[in-house]
Design a protein around this nucleic acid. Structure first.
Lengths: 292, 292
DNA sequence: GTTCCGCATGAATCGATAG
DNA sequence: ACTATCGATTCATGCGGAA
């Protein structure tokens, strides 16, 4: 019942070699984006980006289970007024490594950074590239079903009486057969466009993405006890979410600053686990508040 | 004050040769998507897609003004459980022709085709690739500003409705009062994500995209009296919208069925222009009703 | 005249069946 | 083996008739 969260300090290209073949159910990551400033760490220049990434994606291919999934959050930068093409080239190159480019989800960032340029609007979306090793992979679609749209809502008014009856039958005389029907009608399968706000209010760690992003894909592609990997851990968002959701996880980070931060956070939560339950509940609740 | 709308029957690859260099302000088009069914007309196979398109994009480069813009609406199909890569390859190939890949807008299709598959959700977005000949191009950003309040919801739809009102009042009793009201509101610049529903309900013409799509880009990249080109005219949506907005336009269509349909529509509206004003109002109103 | 509901209809995709 | 056709799945939208 205990969830393992293992983190490593080092370069993914090397560290991944320690991870056994076919052992990971989901890889979710947001690698450092290409950057002109080579001085900054992680500032891989757009020209070298594919070359830099391929050795890593090769290792990722090895460690991923055949029915597992790799989700890559990425967006090309603008260079000299033009979108860079390294993401396109990366997709083509990864296919040559054996990856299947199954799908491209869009993350629509509802509150994108404000700004205005003479010949460009705000960039409010990012790619979530889904890669697989084979056509058949695990996907738990029901886990991410969403409430139906306006059509159902607006028409739900008149149905409310009926709904109450059905609800009553459920509570009262055992199974209402209608309930399952109704429940199914209430929810719809999502699309490949995700509408999420960016988290702009976190004090300490500037995560690349909101928790709900890895959460959605972890729900969709793994079940409890599965293994999640983030080869560019950063502030550890993927791993913390996986942990909370009862998935084992591995995180790799090259910068000791981030690594230590995540490490101390994990130790804190480990301590909490050893406390009596009453205290745990209390602390847990406090911590949650603090995070928000 | 007269707006020219010229349509041609034939293959864009050939017909475009008749159009002079540097004469078009905006190219907006949605080419036939790659299709497995080779028997159907327009079913260009994914393998041949780039090869098929490049001669055309070369001509488009020639006819576009240096400060003009080319907007390409396209989305790759799924083939054997995997997204085809022809769009990625096309972007790379067009850059070698001299095109700058300035931006990629996302069209979020609010009402995408339903369906459920074991390993895939509904596809509810398409690409709107913006290409330019040079870094400096004409962009009238103020024209597509949106009211602040309507952000989350269907902002473009509102704009479109407003435009229709404005159009009506313009044609009828001079400039409408609504316009000034609307103009006084606080407005914000949009982002590169467009939220539009597909028009699935029109009886006669089944357009690939809703009118608000070309409308938005025509507003953004042209002014009145400019020249708009659609090399894959289809049912003529781009041209009719351009016409309504006071832009000259050229449409090219290879299927005589579509060509004739657009031609007769255009002749109808030419006749209307010659009628006395009272009759025109009546007819116009009737036509609008019929369309709805 | 509003508001409300019924209904047809999509740039879809998969898997099975048939030639 | 490989390709062509078909049925099943499923939901936001707007028109048209009804209350």
């Amino acid at each position: 019942m205990s969830v393992k969260t293992d983190i490593f300090l080092g370069d993914s290209k090397d560290v991944l070699k320690q991870i056994p073949d076919n052992s990971v159910n989901l890889i979710f990551t947001s690698p450092p984006y290409a950057d002109q400033r080579k001085s900054t760490y992680g500032g891989i220049s757009p020209d070298k980006y594919v070359e830099w990434f391929l050795p890593i994606s090769k290792e990722l291919f090895r460690v991923l289970k055949p029915d597992g999934t790799f989700v890559l959050n990425i967006k090309e930068k603008v260079v000299k007024g033009e979108r860079s093409t390294y993401v396109l080239e990366l997709i083509l190159a990864m296919r040559k490594q054996g990856w299947l480019w199954t799908e491209e989800f869009i993350w629509h960032k509802k509150n994108s950074f404000p700004g205005k340029w003479p010949n460009r609007f705000r960039d409010s979306w990012e790619r979530l590239l889904q890669f697989n090793k084979q056509r058949k992979f695990n996907m738990y679609q029901e886990e991410v079903m969403v409430p139906m749209g306006d059509w159902a809502k607006s028409r739900l008014k008149n149905l409310s009486e009926t709904d109450k009856k059905r609800e009553n039958s459920k509570v009262g005389s055992g199974f209402g057969k209608n309930v399952s029907n109704w429940l199914n009608r209430d929810k719809a399968y999502p699309t490949n466009v995700l509408h999420l706000a960016t988290e702009c209010n976190n004090k300490n760690h500037s995560a690349a993405f909101p928790e709900s992003l890895p959460e959605w894909f972890i729900k969709l592609f793994t079940k409890e006890g599965d293994m999640v990997l983030d080869p560019f851990m950063g502030s550890g968002t993927t791993n913390f979410v996986a942990r909370r959701m009862g998935r084992h996880s591995i995180g790799i980070e090259i910068l000791s600053e981030y690594y230590n931060m995540v490490k101390s956070e994990l130790e804190k939560s480990d301590l909490i686990l050893f406390e009596p339950k009453a205290n745990y509940e209390k602390t847990k609740s406090g911590r949650r508040k603090a995070i928000r």
